[in-house]
């Protein structure tokens, strides 16, 4: 099977978000970047497991500038065979999806994460599927293959839905699909020699702009309630917060 895993780079999960003075962007100084956890822990690892079970190749695809190479190399160290980077700073989700679609023809399964933890879009995977005319299953927590037929469990509100779909298809991975793998020394050494092909983007218009960010209003200091006076808490929840 030819498997493609789309990975993005996001700020590390404990990052304290700070904005530039004019609030037009994230203050990137001191921010540490990682591979988007859904892409790394679930999508990539499940692709590697499928390859180990039935043979084939796992290719990593990233749309981004040269400073994304560290994240791509980590994916190669975890076990992917090769990688493609589309060399661009481009921003809109649809622009990124278009660049992915240009590279993604001919794969049996295209893996995404359920969302990037920075933009929280949950949209790039479905966009790529539409560009390529492929079925798409979002938020998948389990994926089993039987020949070219997949049985995919996707998370829905308060439960799950089990769907069958044949290759080629696109899927986005949520928690449960696989267990995180830590790269070992041998993997890290081998990753340095694996091919990372850099290609140039195709022309495509930007469809969205983000010019302004805001931080949530500071919480007012917590009101502490005497543990022996839960009637007071209930009163506050009813009269002040008006939530019960």
């Amino acid at each position: 099977m030819k498997l493609l895993v789309c990975v993005s780079k996001t700020p590390e999960t404990t990052t304290k978000i700070q904005l530039t003075a004019d609030q037009s962007d994230l203050d990137k100084s001191g921010v540490q970047y990682i591979m988007n956890p859904y892409d790394e822990w679930y999508a990539l690892v499940r692709a590697l497991e499928l390859k180990e079970a039935v043979g084939g190749t796992v290719t990593i695809l990233n749309v981004g500038a040269a400073d994304n190479d560290t994240v791509i190399r980590k994916g190669l160290a975890i076990g992917a065979d090769d990688a493609i980077r589309v060399n661009t700073d481009g921003g809109s989700s649809l622009y990124i999806a278009k660049q992915i679609a240009e590279q993604a023809a001919g794969y049996d399964i295209i893996f995404f994460g359920k969302e990037t933890i920075d933009y929280n879009g949950s949209e790039v995977g479905a966009m790529v599927a539409e560009f390529l005319g492929l079925p798409y299953v979002g938020d998948a927590s389990n994926l089993e293959m039987n020949g070219n037929q997949a049985t995919v469990t996707r998370d829905i509100e308060g439960g799950v839905e089990v769907v069958e779909v044949e290759t080629p298809f696109a899927v986005s991975a949520a928690k449960g699909m696989a267990e995180q793998r830590i790269p070992n020394m041998r993997g890290i050494m081998m990753a340095k020699r694996k091919p990372l092909n850099v290609v140039e983007p195709v022309d495509f218009p930007e469809t969205t702009q983000v010019n302004h960010y805001e931080l949530p209003a500071e919480k007012t200091a917590v009101k502490l309630i005497d543990p022996d006076n839960m009637e007071e808490l209930v009163r506050l929840l009813h009269e002040e917060a008006r939530v019960i």
Binding site: D118, Y119, Q209, E214, P216
Partner: peptide, 16 residues
Amino acid sequence: RKAVFSGKAYADVTLT
């Protein structure tokens, strides 16, 4: 306006 960074900030997205 949408929440970004898992609710740690908001972004004003303009659709053009």
